[in-house]
Design a protein around this nucleic acid. Structure first.
Length: 213
DNA sequence: TTGCAGATCATCT
DNA sequence: GATGATCTGCAAG
C-alpha cells in the first residue's frame, strides 16, 4: 500500500512575461522550477532538472528551422507560455514550453524532472515499479509519467489550478549548479549540434544522461 | 557499463 | 517512402 505524498501547490506560477524571453534564457530559468500536470483530482510533477533550448528559424535542430511552419509545429508560433507537444518515433511524446514572442518559433524542451508529486500515479502510468531515477529521465518518459499527449499541444501553462503549470516552488531548489552542455540527438544539425543549449543540474541523479557521456 | 537493434507511426518530402 | 528533439531489452566486453 503506497503512502500518498502531500500535494504541493504552494508555488508562484510563471507568467506570460516570464515566458516572453529567448529560449536559452528560459531554459536556464526553468532549472529548479516545479512542473505540475493535473488530471481531475490527480496531480503529478516535479522539479525540472534538464532542459534544451530551440532558438527558432536559424536553429538547424529546431522543427521551425528556415521558418518551416506545419500543422505539427504551429504551437511554436503561438504566444509565449503555450505547450508545444509533438509525437515522435512512433511512440513518444515530447513537451516544450513556447517562449519569446508571437510568430517567433522558439521553445524549451523539458527533458527530465526530479519526480516529487504523484509518484504512485507516475509509476502506474509508466507501468512500473521502476527505479525512481528512471521514472522521468528523458522527454518521452516524462510525458508518459505525466500523462501528456497531443491533446495538450497548444494548451496554456497557467496558474496552480490549470492542467499545466510551471513555477517557482516556495523553497526554490538551488540552481547555481546549472551548467550548459550540448543537446541530445541533434547530430544532424551541423554546427548547431555543438552549441551548448542544454541545461542540466550538475550532479543530479535524475538526468536522462550525464553531461559528459 | 556500453552499444546496438527493433519497435512503430505522425509528419514531411 | 524516409525519417526522427526516443526508449527498451539484450548481448558483449
Amino acid at each position: 500500500m503506497p503512502t500518498p505524498e502531500p500535494v504541493r501547490t504552494d508555488f508562484r506560477p510563471l507568467t506570460q512575461a516570464d515566458f516572453a524571453v529567448p529560449a536559452h534564457l528560459l531554459a536556464r530559468r526553468l532549472i529548479g522550477c516545479l512542473l505540475l500536470v493535473r488530471d481531475g483530482p490527480d496531480v503529478a510533477g516535479g522539479i525540472i532538472v534538464e532542459t534544451e533550448a530551440y532558438l527558432g528559424i536559424h536553429d538547424r535542430a529546431s522543427h521551425a528551422f528556415a521558418g518551416r511552419r506545419t500543422a505539427r509545429n504551429q504551437s511554436m508560433y503561438g504566444p509565449p507560455g503555450l505547450a508545444y507537444v509533438y509525437f515522435t518515433y512512433g511512440m513518444h511524446h515530447c513537451l516544450n514550453v513556447v517562449c519569446a514572442d508571437v510568430n517567433v518559433p522558439a521553445a524549451v524542451l523539458i527533458r527530465a524532472i526530479q519526480p516529487t508529486v504523484g509518484l504512485h500515479l507516475m509509476q502506474t502510468r509508466r507501468q512500473g515499479p521502476l527505479p525512481e531515477r528512471r521514472l522521468c529521465a528523458g522527454p518521452g518518459r516524462l510525458c508518459q509519467a505525466l500523462g501528456i499527449s497531443l491533446v495538450d499541444d497548444g494548451r496554456r501553462f497557467g496558474g496552480s489550478r490549470s492542467r499545466l503549470s510551471v513555477g517557482m516552488p516556495d523553497v526554490k531548489m538551488d540552481n547555481s549548479r546549472a551548467i550548459r552542455t550540448t543537446r541530445i540527438g541533434v547530430d544532424y544539425a551541423g554546427s548547431w549540434a555543438s552549441r551548448p543549449l542544454r541545461w542540466v543540474l550538475a550532479g543530479s541523479p535524475w538526468l536522462s544522461r550525464s553531461p559528459h557521456s
